[in-house]
Design a protein around this nucleic acid. Structure first.
Length: 652
RNA sequence: GGGAGCGUAGCUCAGGUGGAUAGAGCAUCUGCCUUCUAAGCAGAGGGUCGCAGGUUCGAGUCCUGCCGCUCCUACCA
């Protein structure tokens, strides 16, 4: 409702300004007045006009208000403050729009498929809370896009041939002296092979520090894996596939699913790089350095730098080393050319995993294993890479390479969805039994490190949340079966976790603390879920449903006037802004706004719930109005929570 | 050295392209369960928006300079 009316208002003002002053404003700012009594929209444009028209803002506002023609759906335009123009909408009409919800549905899907890449955890250890932030942000953004009618493919990039996997392979083979068969036995004996690798990974990192020769083992292992077709590569494939499956299971617990898993092994073996290298050389994006410290390397000038006037550009980014091997940025350039359909090559595809709903996850594979009738991923028009802020430099390099290759359009639709890391508070680290140095104890947070085995595992946190929620549900609903209570506890735990990860803005480091993450009160997911449950209870006790109430609505305008009416109208207005918020979250790639909105809507509903007792209302018309109010808020709250991947239990 | 970001209540954080009296949650204190579930509601205290200048009708927001903190800046991935 709000989004639609706002568009009409801007259009109306624009054409009026053109007719009256021959003014063409490309950006008409619309705000919401600080108080609902002032109306629904506030236009500060007269302050801007004051300079151009050389008149006092208030004077201009009076002039405009006096001559502005009426607009359908709007009741009045008024001058306020030092020169604001406030607009009042017709409450009854607007409320009817909210009830219908038709006009507010996402604008017809724009053309062009979008690719969102998120999660991309190295398949050598269990997922931790930092990975959770990535996946939850990415998954929520996917849901935002889909709710706006966009077609989205979700990719989870698997670096199955990198050093991190090599580290664990070296750990199994050299530290634990395990054969492939013995590793397979370990896998079969545990349901959490990723946990086993977590500990081993930490041990290996320490082992490297003990002897320089061990570092050579690491390098040799890496090279064997990259080359492929040997025992170590087979073991790497075995381990990385097993850990990847664990990651999919962990994410599935949170309702996070993928469409395609491109692997680095295919990027290597299908020679994506050599094709990209030809293009990069031909377009002179890379040049061969013949002197200085980068002598013998293929390098790229850094974005923003003009290179040095004389002598070699020592600051240039090395893409191909002097020994002829390519770094990961090079492989990433090739991969991104593929994403936009500019590489001229494709992966092989095979099915890897099937979700309970029948949806398949595909994985990249060699041409021999390519399944018939597979879907094609890639060749999209827009991409979003959910990758933490530390990688912004390489991300810029890839984008710059696209630009220099002439793919300017694609580079513009390349978005690094950047976010800050999750760290642990020193208190939390101590609680977990880690040794914390004096120096670290003084810090406000300590960075999580998979290499040191320092962090909170995703599955552990979720288990802890479920346990805490279960205890609450047990005490509140002894009449339910254990199975039912567990199902509810799971929904609450997921709601708490997803909301927690979304409530912070992306650029804020989350200093993780169990006390806050395990909270179910205040600004949390369960708070919003509870508001919906309360609304549901009203309809159940009234012997009807919210859907039924919304089917036929009378004229609500009589109940939206006066002091009480205005107070309830504020709730309607907020409920009518869901689509505005979804648009805003997409435009700014910031899901936190939606979390904030959901909380505010729940908060205002709880307030309404407390002040207006619906079932004992004697006036039938008024009772009907209050029920409609609850039904509308409930529907929008459920819708917004669903975009955040949060479902609502039947009772709490 | 260069680049990016951050600094707002005791703590954790919001504060679209400058706009009306700087807001939440937690914590502390005071009330409210015979009512549609108290995972809730109402209220109180708590602020030199890091510091100093500048831009203008107007600055937490923009510019400059300081102070403090973090990350990036390898022929590792």
């Amino acid at each position: 409702m709000y989004r639609q009316l706002q568009r009409h208002l801007i259009q109306h003002i624009r054409s009026f300004l053109q007719a009256k002053y021959q003014l063409e404003l490309d950006n008409i700012v619309v705000e919401q007045p600080p108080k609902i009594e002032f109306g629904e929209f506030a236009l500060p444009l007269c302050f801007e006009l004051a300079r151009r028209l050389r008149k006092a803002p208030r004077k201009i506002a009076e002039e405009i208000v006096a001559e502005l023609p009426p607009l359908d759906g709007f009741q009045a335009f008024e001058v306020a403050g030092g020169g604001y123009i406030n607009a009042r909408i017709n409450r009854g009409r607007a409320a009817a729009l909210v009830v219908e919800a038709q006009a507010d549905m996402a604008s017809a899907g724009q053309a062009g498929k979008i690719l969102v890449e998120h999660t991309s955890i190295n398949p050598n250890k269990a997922a931790h809370i930092g990975h959770l932030r990535n996946s939850i942000l990415g998954d929520t953004f996917v849901r935002l896009l889909r709710s706006a009618g966009r077609e989205v493919d979700v990719q989870n990039y698997i670096d199955n041939t990198g050093v991190q996997v090599a580290d664990v392979v070296a750990g199994f083979v050299h530290l634990e002296k395990k054969s492939k068969a013995e590793i397979e036995k370990i896998m079969a004996s545990t349901s959490k092979f990723d946990y086993y690798c977590w500990d081993l990974y930490a041990k290996v990192s320490q082992w490297y520090g003990e002897d320089k020769a061990n570092l050579q083992v690491r390098l040799d292992t890496l090279h064997a894996i990259e080359h492929g077709g040997n025992e170590l590569a087979d073991i790497a494939d075995l381990i990385s596939t097993a850990v990847l499956l664990r990651h999919l299971e962990t994410m599935e617990r949170l309702g996070i699913e993928y469409d395609f898993l491109p692997r680095e092994s295919e990027i290597l073996h299908l020679n994506f790089w050599s094709t990209a290298f030809e293009q990069l050389k031909e377009k002179k994006v890379l040049y061969f350095e013949t002197e200085g410290k980068n002598n013998g390397c293929w390098v790229m000038t850094r974005p923003g730098s003009e290179g040095s006037a004389e002598g070699p550009d020592e600051d240039a980014k090395v893409i191909v080393r002097s020994n002829g091997t390519v770094g990961y940025v090079g492989k990433d350039i090739a991969y991104h050319l593929w994403k936009f359909g500019l590489l001229g090559r494709d992966f092989g595809y095979k099915r890897f995993y099937r979700y309970p709903n029948g949806q398949d996850v595909w994985i990249s594979t060699s041409p021999e294993d390519d399944e018939l009738n597979h879907p094609h991923f890639g060749s999209v028009s827009e991409i979003y890479n959910v990758i933490d802020a530390r990688q912004s430099e390489p991300q810029e390099t890839v984008k710059e390479a696209l630009r220099l290759l002439g793919a300017t359009e694609q580079a513009e639709h390349y978005t690094h969805f950047s976010y800050e890391m999750v760290a642990l508070t020193p208190r939390c680290a101590l609680e977990l039994g880690y040794e914390v140095s004096e120096e670290d104890q003084q810090k406000s947070y300590i960075e999580v490190s998979g290499r040191k085995g320092f962090g909170v595992k995703a599955d552990d946190l979720l288990d802890k949340l479920i346990l805490a929620a279960k205890a609450e549900v047990d005490s509140r609903h002894p009449e339910l079966s254990d199975e039912e209570r567990l199902a509810i506890a799971r929904q609450i735990a997921i709601g708490a976790l997803r909301y927690f990860m979304l409530k912070f803005t992306k650029q804020s480091v989350i200093a993780f603390d169990f006390r806050e993450a395990l909270a179910f009160e205040g600004e949390t997911g369960p708070y919003a879920q509870y508001a919906v449950v309360r609304a549901t209870n009203i309809f159940r006790k009234a012997g009807t449903t919210a859907e039924e109430i919304l089917k036929d609505s009378a004229d609500l305008s009589p109940y939206l006037e006066g002091e009480t009416g205005t107070e309830i109208w504020a709730l309607w207005l907020l409920a009518g802004q869901a689509s505005t918020l979804i648009d805003q979250c997409i435009a700014t790639t910031e899901p936190a706004y939606l979390a904030k909105y959901a909380f505010q809507l729940a908060q205002q509903f709880n307030n309404f719930y407390h002040r207006h007792h619906i079932l004992t209302e004697a006036d039938e018309g008024r009772k009907r109005f209050l029920l409609t109010t609850a039904a509308v808020v409930r529907r929008e709250l459920i819708r917004v929570l669903a975009v955040m991947g949060i479902t609502v239990p039947p009772v709490m």
